[in-house]
């Protein structure tokens, strides 16, 4: 049995960043390497040759619309399903051959809470520790630190039903840390939480990164990805269609400025004048999105000011613009 670390979050390791800003981590041995992964269900290929690698201390995001293959990739990495092709190494172990050994050093926060409703907060952690082969006495010693980290100090004896959604999510995060993992796998960690609860989770995750943990996360919140991820991959229909740091992706994939044009006249304007003077323009409902270079912003805003039936909003391009450009605007249910 692997000994537990002295504390949940050791003092910031050398070269790690401050908790409130995310910087590129130093080079290190790969914590997770996925090469040429393919997986199909019932003859339909849902992962079509995906490769990526996580360096130690890095936060790597998998972004994609529903059905892009994000959760399937995570299941393959954890050895919970076998792929048709591809190689996976996680925390130094070949997966799926040694998946169980690998999971000794991995913590997982699943998409849907699966805490034990019959147990108290502390019992949830205690029982989960047993699945790793830990003696109760070892886990008990760690529980105060884990709860402290999750903002649940003093809640040892609280019943699950008395916790809010955000508290349950933080307890799930604490449970994922019970084995002091090297790698954290988070499947949509803030889906369904209110803004306050989301910010608290992000702050906790940044804290873990600053302590040298490696994070693999799936999300479809662009702000979450932009805030947390050093690098990310945008997935569509089982393929990585773009990969890089959030800023780099925005710079490489899309015009730097966006002018959103609203109003009843927007579709008409987009079909006429808009089409002629904006190189790339997308219409979604009654909003026209004009993607333009820096120098084009002022002249276009001036033109739009002449139309009384239109309202225009100028903002810099963001990750969501990249995402929508690469994966399209149609619904994926």
């Amino acid at each position: 049995m692997a000994p537990l670390g002295p504390a949940v979050v050791p003092a910031a390791s050398q070269g790690a960043c401050a908790a409130d800003q995310v910087t590129m981590p130093g080079r290190g041995p790969g914590v997770l390497t996925v090469a040429g992964l393919r997986k199909s269900y019932g003859g339909r290929e849902v992962v079509k040759g995906v490769s990526f690698a996580l360096a130690r201390g890095e936060c790597y995001g998998l972004l994609g619309p529903n059905g892009a293959g994000k959760t399937t990739i995570l299941r393959c990495c954890l050895g919970l399903t076998s792929a048709e092709a591809g190689e996976i190494r996680m925390v130094g172990e070949a997966v799926p051959e040694h998946a169980r050994q690998a999971r000794m050093k991995v913590g997982v926060v699943p998409q849907f809470d699966n805490l034990d409703p019959d147990f108290t907060v502390a019992e949830n952690l205690l029982v989960f520790g047993r699945y790793f082969g830990f003696q109760d006495i070892e886990t008990r010693r760690r529980i105060p630190d884990l709860l402290d980290f999750a903002g649940l100090a003093g809640k040892e004896k609280a019943r699950l039903a008395s916790l809010s959604g955000g508290m349950k999510r933080r307890l799930t995060l604490a449970r994922a840390l019970v084995n002091d993992p090297d790698l954290l796998v988070l499947d949509e960690p803030t889906t369904g939480l209110d803004p306050q609860a989301r910010h608290l989770i992000w702050e906790r995750l940044k804290h873990l990164l600053s302590a040298g943990k490696t994070i693999l996360l799936t999300t479809h919140f662009m702000d979450e990805a932009e805030r947390l991820c050093h690098r990310l991959a945008i997935l569509d229909e089982g393929r990585i269609v773009a990969e890089g740091a959030p800023r780099e992706l925005i710079a490489a994939q899309i015009e730097p400025q966006v002018i959103e044009v609203y109003g009843e006249d927007a579709p008409g304007w987009a079909a006429g004048e808009g089409k002629d003077c904006v190189r790339r323009l997308e219409l979604s409902g009654e909003t026209a999105f004009c993607y333009v270079e820096d120098k084009d912003v002022t002249p276009l805003m001036a033109r739009l000011a002449l139309h009384s039936g239109l309202r225009a909003l100028h903002r810099p391009a963001n990750l969501e613009d990249v995402f929508l450009k690469l994966t399209g605007r149609e619904l994926r249910d």
Partner: peptide, 10 residues
Amino acid sequence: KTWEAILNAP
């Protein structure tokens, strides 16, 4: 989904 949680452990 208790089993699912357990399967994420070793």
